[in-house]
Design a protein around this nucleic acid. Structure first.
Lengths: 346, 346
DNA sequence: ACTGGCACTCGGAGACGTCGAGTGCCAGGG
DNA sequence: CCCTGGCACTCGACGTCTCCGAGTGCCAGT
């Protein structure tokens, strides 16, 4: 079994390795940290750590390198997040500044996070499920097609074109609009979606043209609401990967692919389980199922009246976890605050 | 002066270099192409080409490599675009399929282009200047803020929140809406933008609350229309850069940055001058001002009732120009056709 | 104008020796 | 029982050297 000091040795190895990017030997440890024991003793501890597969040697008789499992133990038990410097905090505050709207706010957030960590930053759109639908409008594009517009109290506006089974005159269109408003307006997105589901399940086969039209438009509305809930992702900092290239044994290709295929990252993020503080980490091979065995993803939850979601970063397995987790947490907190302030304004 | 055969030698060098990724020597040329002369003769031609700075040797006594200038001459005078295979054509057709809307169509286009060329693909949104505004709506979010919605006959819908200088009642809001409709509806985007500009220039200082509100909303409308014209860009294939990494002496960092900073690419594309067929190429150091000295960008214009714009690809200087130009041209033609068909449907 | 021949250059690959960081192990000491 | 200093050993990194061959430029000859 690995001793208490053994764990401290693991911590030292992780820290030094992240710093120097070189395998760390017993001698380097006694020099850089004051363990008060000799290198030989550290060596014995290292042998134990290696038995536990927390560290490994790239080649026989070279320094040690943390394994994915080693990083995991480090993150779970050894990492102490240092709060950001006041300079960093004020940088966040000024960077986020006075956002123009939600898109703008999230765009700024993702930029500040990539700038703070030097890694690829990810920001999930809030799930809008708690947002309330305030306006529903139908605009007649031509006799067979209408544009459905849904506005929520969060300022989100979305539109979708619905094809009508048959042409309607203005009066009929107005009736359709009224019935849609009744179905949707004044409810939360989640309620409205449930309501549509329910209505469709027990709908009689439509008899009148208006019924058929309502049916068609309701279907479009359901699709649109589904899209509300399907989280989107904003990203930034892909270019930083080029600099870190040597950190990835293979290539940065899988990461770039994941960035293009947002879906993968969304699934990955949704499967991560947060700890008590809303933080979570997924390290190296834990991401193998997503083709990201050489990357780590850190996320921090944020929450607000609109709904909850996550911000996070993605980078090489060998990254500064405490620093990056702290940055993600700080940014998530600012985001929560700004969203709630904004909410108050309405 | 470089002879006719000299130019053929240049062509051979470009082709072989793109193929093999290795400097090509005089011997390799006589073996792979039937020039009917000996290697020594080719060497003399190569010496001339080198005098003209069309080719260069990486090290004394190694094969020759085309310079940027050499690629330029090749593209301008020597390249013959081979039409795509029928298999490729049908791949494009089926890939583009039945697009759901403009966003969907362009997303498919960019994917097909990256798939066809293996390079980063770029598709500009059409300039909407020729699109006609069909609907203008105001939605009251709260007494001090309204949501302006503009719909064009191309199906594009956009919205913007405008803050009112003072609260209005429902009737006043209706008046504001009527006046805005008068300003915008039924005109093309370009006309409407001009109209707003004009109106603002000669507007009296607003006296009534309604005047002030119209002023505020018109300003929002002007901003929104400006955004219509500012072209956006859709991209795909960034991940392919990771594979081509060794093609870039420095790193792929500048390319990834350009992809994130769409603005750079938009400016670059807008400065490229198309030839008679709507094709253009910007090669290597010609892009130095944009930080892309090791990349080439090829574009092909497309056009439609909505407006014109470009599709293109970006890749290493050493790329298969004829093939990629042909692909861009083919995709642009399909795109033009689909946009016009779609137009007919309205 | 083209060709074959020749001397020359120079990068790349392989062989080789040296160096040193790092290890495992062991006998001895608090 | 845990720690330490010492020691032999391993092995990658690095520099040097040599060899090889592809490729060139030039020149005299057809």
């Amino acid at each position: 079994m690995v001793s208490e000091r053994g764990l401290q040795v693991l911590r030292a190895i992780v820290q030094d390795y992240v710093d120097t990017h070189e395998p760390v030997g017993s001698r380097a440890i006694v020099e850089r940290h004051s363990f008060g024991v000799s290198a030989a003793t550290i060596r014995n501890d290292m042998a134990l750590l290696e038995d536990e597969e927390l560290i490994a040697q790239p080649h026989t008789s070279s320094g040690r390198v943390p394994t994915d499992k080693g990083y995991r133990v480090f993150v779970d038990h050894l990492a102490e997040l240092r709060p950001l410097s006041t300079a960093q905090r004020s940088a966040i505050a000024s960077f986020l500044g006075e956002p123009y709207d939600l898109d703008d706010l999230l765009a700024r957030t993702v930029r500040v996070l990539t700038q703070l960590t030097g890694q690829v930053a990810l920001v999930q759109y809030p799930s809008f499920s708690r947002a309330n639908i305030t306006h529903v409008q139908l605009v007649e594009l031509d006799p067979q097609r209408v544009l459905l517009i849904i506005v929520t109290d969060t300022g989100r506006v979305s539109q979708r074109i619905a094809a009508l089974p048959q042409a309607l005159d203005a009066e009929e269109t107005a009736t359709v609009a009224t019935r849609l408003v009744a179905l949707l307006a004044g409810r939360s997105v989640a309620e409205a979606a449930d309501g549509l589901e329910h209505a469709r399940a027990q709908a009689p086969t439509p008899v009148t043209a208006v019924d058929a039209a309502v049916h068609a438009v309701a279907a479009a509305a359901a699709e649109e609401l589904a899209e509300f809930r399907q989280n989107r992702l904003v990203m930034a900092g892909a270019a930083t990967l080029a600099r870190r290239e040597h950190d990835f044994r293979g290539s940065i290709h899988p990461l770039l692919e994941a960035i293009e295929e947002q879906v993968t990252l969304l699934r990955l993020m949704s499967e991560m389980v947060a700890d008590g503080q809303g933080l979570s980490a997924s390290i190296g091979r834990e991401n193998a199922a997503f083709g990201l065995s050489e990357a780590s993803i850190l996320t921090s939850e944020y929450d607000s009246a609109i709904g909850a979601a996550r911000v996070g970063i993605m980078g090489p397995t060998r990254m500064d976890y405490p620093r990056n987790l702290a940055a993600a947490r700080a940014v998530a907190r600012y985001l929560t605050r700004l969203l709630d302030e904004d909410e108050g304004r309405r």
